[in-house]
Simulated scan of single mutants.
Amino acid sequence: MSFLKLENLTVAYGKDAPVLKNLNLSVEKGEFVSLLGPSGCGKTTTLRTIAGFLKPLSGRVLIGGKDYTNVPTHKRNIGVVFQNYALFPHMSVFENVAFGLRMRKIPRQEIEKKVRRALEMVGLAGFEKRLPSELSGGQQQRVAIARAIVIEPDLLLMDEPLSNLDANLRMEMRSEIKQLQKNLGITTVYVTHDQSEAIALSDRVVVMNSGKIEQVATPQEIFSNPKTSFVASFIGFQVLAVGTVTSIEENFAEVLREGKIYRARITGRVQLQDKVILFARPRKMRLTRHETQNCFQVQLISVLYQGETSLLVFRLGERQFSVEQDSAVSLPVGSNVFVHVPPEDLLALKEE
Rank of each mutant, 00 (worst) to 15 (best):
Val11Ala: 07
Ala12Glu: 10
Phe32Thr: 04
Phe32Asn: 00
Pro38Gly: 03
Ser39His: 09
Thr44Trp: 02
Leu47Ala: 06
Gly52Trp: 09
Leu54Pro: 04
Thr73Ile: 13
Lys75Gln: 14
Phe88Asn: 05
Val97Arg: 09
Phe99Cys: 04
Arg102Met: 13
Lys105Met: 04
Lys105Asn: 14
Lys113Glu: 15
Val115Ala: 05
Val115Phe: 06
Leu119Ile: 11
Phe127Asp: 01
Lys129Glu: 15
Leu131Tyr: 15
Ser133Met: 06
Glu134Ser: 11
Gly138Thr: 04
Gln139Thr: 03
Gln140Asp: 02
Arg142Ser: 00
Arg142Gln: 08
Ala144Glu: 01
Leu155His: 12
Glu160Cys: 03
Glu160Gly: 03
Asp166Cys: 02
Ser175His: 11
Gln179Met: 11
Leu180Phe: 00
Asn183Leu: 13
Leu184Val: 02
Thr188His: 08
Tyr190Val: 01
Val191Asn: 03
Asp194Ala: 01
Ala198Val: 05
Ala200Pro: 01
Gln220Arg: 15
Ser224Cys: 05
Thr228Tyr: 12
Ser233Pro: 01
Phe234Cys: 04
Leu240Pro: 02
Ala241Thr: 13
Val245Tyr: 05
Ser247Leu: 02
Phe252Gln: 14
Leu256Pro: 03
Lys260Phe: 13
Tyr262Glu: 03
Tyr262Gly: 07
Arg263Gly: 00
Arg269Phe: 12
Gln271Thr: 14
Gln271Ile: 12
Leu278Gln: 00
Phe279Asn: 07
Arg286Glu: 13
Asn294Asp: 01
Leu300Ala: 10
Ser302Met: 12
Gln306Asn: 13
Leu312Arg: 06
Leu312Cys: 02
Arg315Leu: 07
Leu316Thr: 07
Gly317Lys: 07
Arg319Gly: 07
Arg319Trp: 10
Gly334Phe: 07
Gly334Asn: 11
Asn336Cys: 00
Val337Glu: 08
Val339Ser: 00
Val341Met: 04
Leu346Phe: 08
Leu347Thr: 11
Leu349Asn: 13
